[in-house]
Amino acid sequence: MEPTDKEEKVVFVIDDRSTSDVVVRLRTQEGREEWMYCHSVILVKSCKYFADRLSENWPTCQILGSRNCVDVNCQESDFDYYVNVIRFLYIVDDDGLVDDLWHGVRNNLGILQVAVELDCPKIVAACVSYLEAMTWEESEEEEILKIVPRMGLQAEPILARLQPVDEIAVRNVFLSALRFVTSSPPLAMNDLKSSAQEQLDYMLSEDDDVPLLIADDKIKLEILSKLEIMRDFVECWFDASEKIVKVLEQESSATDIIEIKLRAVEITSKVLEAIAYGTVILPTAKRLQVLKQWLPFVRVTKPMIDSAMMNSENAVLPKMDSEMWQTLESSFVSVVLALPSGDQAVLLTEWLENEHMRYPDLTEAFEVWCYRSKVARRRLSVLEDDQVMTNSV
């Protein structure tokens, strides 16, 4: 066979005693020790620490068949990380991937510290790439903050997600969240809306840290304008509700009138949602009046709209999303439960005696009212006893 011009690459395997020319002897103060049979060409190429230790400037002893011996002392808690780093030197030298060998963020962080200590650039780069791409638990994040900043520029990409954000980006996020919160998302997004409201409060609050955003005139104007528009809208609809309901109740069930009633229900849903969420605060009398006007109307109108929707002749009628009905029902329940118990009793009595009690379903309000009413005397008597004791002291 003729020789080839290209040299055949020699593959070294760690702990292969037949080819090893270096023993790395890991030791701890507690007496733990491990001998790793290595190859100087691998250690010197991928690790500056071993390159220095195996140079002529650093004396080494020879053991076991004239092999050089390098003693490495480490802490007991870091022992396994040192073993892994030395093994990884063989993988990165062969351009192998170590992405599936980290076994989690904490293990990777330990390996990274040793790789920085021993000055192993390829392993450091692989560790940084892994940590930069992974999600962290809160405890892992705290540990990263303690360790990584001391590692200099090579580990800087890891901290990119923790850097302060410029004010323009913060403002854009805040205003987008504000617009979402003051909108009327589907019922399925109520949890998202509540979460967004909490984060808006958090961004503006001052606790152990300064507020994420200082509400300047532009932001204040945006907030006030949103609230003012909604408040005016609710007040306007409240003032006109009695006349609107009377007019719509007198009209026939023609398709065009059904569509108008549908639009009225949609607007009422937005109004009640604003009241239920506390976006607009109305006094008790007005909240009760809104319910007395729109509960009976919606009870009768929904079956009419459902029937029209099923009629093929009315296919052109715009459809009302089922989530809108759920949102409206949920808002009715919330507003009812915020009324005095006596007013709740009146509304629940009307609901239980009505043939259209299926919608809106006030079962949740009924259950809460029953519980509150049953335990009211006991609750209030306890409060009165506590007040007497406080006054006597």
Rank of each mutant, 00 (worst) to 15 (best):
M304L: 14
F297G: 06
Q293T: 11
R299K: 11
L291W: 02
V298R: 03
P303W: 00
M304R: 13
K302E: 04
E313P: 01
N311I: 03
A315Y: 03
R299H: 04
K302Q: 10
V298L: 07
D306T: 12
M304H: 09
V290F: 15
V298M: 03
R287K: 15
A285I: 10
K286H: 07
L291A: 06
A285E: 15
V298E: 01
Q289G: 04
E313K: 07
R299C: 07
S307A: 09
P296Y: 09
F297D: 06
K302W: 10
V298Y: 00
P303S: 04
M304Q: 13
T301S: 07
Q289H: 14
E313H: 10
M310Y: 02
P296R: 07
P296W: 12
M309S: 12
V290S: 04
K292I: 02
L295W: 14
M304A: 02
S312E: 15
V298K: 03
K302V: 15
M309E: 12
A315F: 10
M310G: 15
K292E: 13
K292D: 10
V300A: 05
F297S: 05
A285H: 14
M304I: 08
Q293L: 15
Q293C: 13
P296S: 05
F297E: 06
S307N: 06
N314T: 09
L288D: 05
T301L: 03
V290K: 00
N314I: 03
E313G: 11
A308N: 06
M309N: 08
K302S: 00
M309D: 11
L291R: 02
M310T: 09
M304F: 08
V298F: 01
P303V: 00
L295A: 07
A315I: 09
V300Y: 01
S307T: 07
M309K: 04
R287C: 14
Q293G: 05
R287S: 08
P296V: 06
V298P: 00
M310F: 06
L295T: 10
S312L: 11
R287I: 06
Q289K: 14
K302Y: 13
V298T: 12
W294G: 01
L295N: 12
M304T: 07
D306L: 12
K302T: 04
A308Y: 09
M310A: 14
A285V: 13
A285P: 05
K302C: 10
L291F: 10
V300W: 02
W294P: 01
Q289R: 15
M304C: 09
Q289P: 01
L291T: 07
N314K: 07
R287H: 02
P296L: 02
S312G: 10
L295E: 13
V290N: 06
